[in-house]
Design a protein around this nucleic acid. Structure first.
Lengths: 226, 226
DNA sequence: CCTCCGAAGTAAGCATCGCTTACATGCCCA
DNA sequence: TGGGCATGTAAGCGATGCTTACTTCGGAGG
């Protein structure tokens, strides 16, 4: 039998007694369940079934179902951060407010693509947010990125007079509110249909940032250029 | 579903075989559980226990646990509407934007006072929102009330140029986002502590409405007067 | 190379859950 | 007065989260 050289064994064979990477397999299975049917349809037993282990095995790696869901949230938050970072990297403009909308684009894009997973990330009553270094770090990165853009916009005299702390909170709440309205099923009405939701969300955030700009015409131009 | 014309039986005695008002008792018990420990801690069996009936009895009145939770949401939505109506009635001013902030006050006041119940009302993935006449009606009332105020503000030339549909969505999303950030546990950070949350929420909404006003100084005055 | 220890699996079981079925009760009306 | 039907009970099914006692096996130390 070929023994793996130095690194880690792989479960290539039908499966030995030890799984080898159960923790990651459980997270992957739980994420798949979340994406497929929402957080309510996640079951430790079903995830264990999909990982090919007994129903007690997961508890060697997760103290509770909540700990598993926290890991699911960590994965989601990392993807959310990556989506934002991607849009930011793809943004040619250096205009802080243009880049701020790129943050919004990345945020909405991931929430729209993974609504049920996004709900797990957003709801801090079901997970141990403050106990997770990864969640605190990645969420902090998003916040500080926004804050830095606001600070630069103010330094560059791009904003009309305002309280930066208030504006920052407004921006966060507006983005969170729009995303949550989507994933909570508020967009099935005559005024904002499910199909029109993405455009409406982007439009609302764009209008907000435009209202912040000292020279909204110039910002409009910069946005159209980008 | 014929409604009895005259009086309904009351469970005055220690309890006969028939409860007499199980449906309402179940809703009350479920609401108490929601307020006490969140929606996750609601159990049909526990609610039945508190109502003093067997665990199968509730299913004579609710097709499923989801139907019970929908009834819980109906009660919450009615209270939310009443809270808004109260603030609106207590608002002396006729200025549409002042009254709009009164709507926000009523909305936030109830969400802050009943965070776990508010979550049930807001999450339309767990309840049969569109199947509930009461939910659709009361939620529609709130929306149309806001819309009417925006329309009047525009007619009275109180708004700076804007797309009313976009502004309406922004306002809804901002309020929903702020309330949900609260009930989802996002306000335990250094920038917005749990204690400062109510003020921050009102401040953010107020700043938003002020930014909409053509004459924000006049609106500030009207707000201080009210 | 062997041995043994502890990490990581299994099997079985507990209390509880949502929901169903078969049966019991008692109010209202013919 | 008698019967029908809404409403209750008791018992049970399959599933859940989590625990306990036992088993397996990989790798470090002698």
């Amino acid at each position: 039998m070929a023994v793996a050289p130095g690194t880690r064994r792989k479960p290539a064979e039908p499966r030995a007694y030890h799984h080898g990477a159960l923790r990651n397999a459980m997270i992957a299975a739980a994420v798949a369940l979340v994406e497929g049917g929402g957080a309510e349809s996640v079951t430790v037993r079903e995830a264990a079934r999909r990982a090919g282990v007994s129903s007690g095995a997961p508890f060697r790696h997760f103290a509770s179902k909540g700990a598993l869901m926290t890991a699911v949230a960590e994965e989601g938050m990392a993807k959310l951060r990556a989506s934002i970072a991607g849009k930011l990297a793809a943004c040619a403009s250096e205009h802080p407010l243009v880049r701020l909308l790129a943050v919004g684009d990345g945020y909405f894009a991931w929430a729209i693509a993974h609504p049920t997973h996004y709900r797990v990330v957003g709801d801090r009553t079901q997970i141990d947010f403050w106990g997770s270094e990864a969640l605190v770090r990645d969420n902090g990165w998003i916040r500080s990125e926004m804050l830095a853009l606001f600070a630069r916009a103010e330094k560059d005299k791009l904003l009309r007079p305002c309280d930066l702390r208030v504006v920052h909170l407004q921006c966060r709440a507006l983005a969170y509110g729009l995303a949550r309205m989507l994933v909570d099923g508020h967009f099935r009405e005559f005024d904002v249909s499910a199909k029109a939701a993405p455009d409406a969300m982007r439009g609302a955030l764009r209008a907000f940032v435009l209202s912040l700009a000292r020279d909204s015409a110039a910002l409009t131009k910069a946005l159209d250029a980008a």
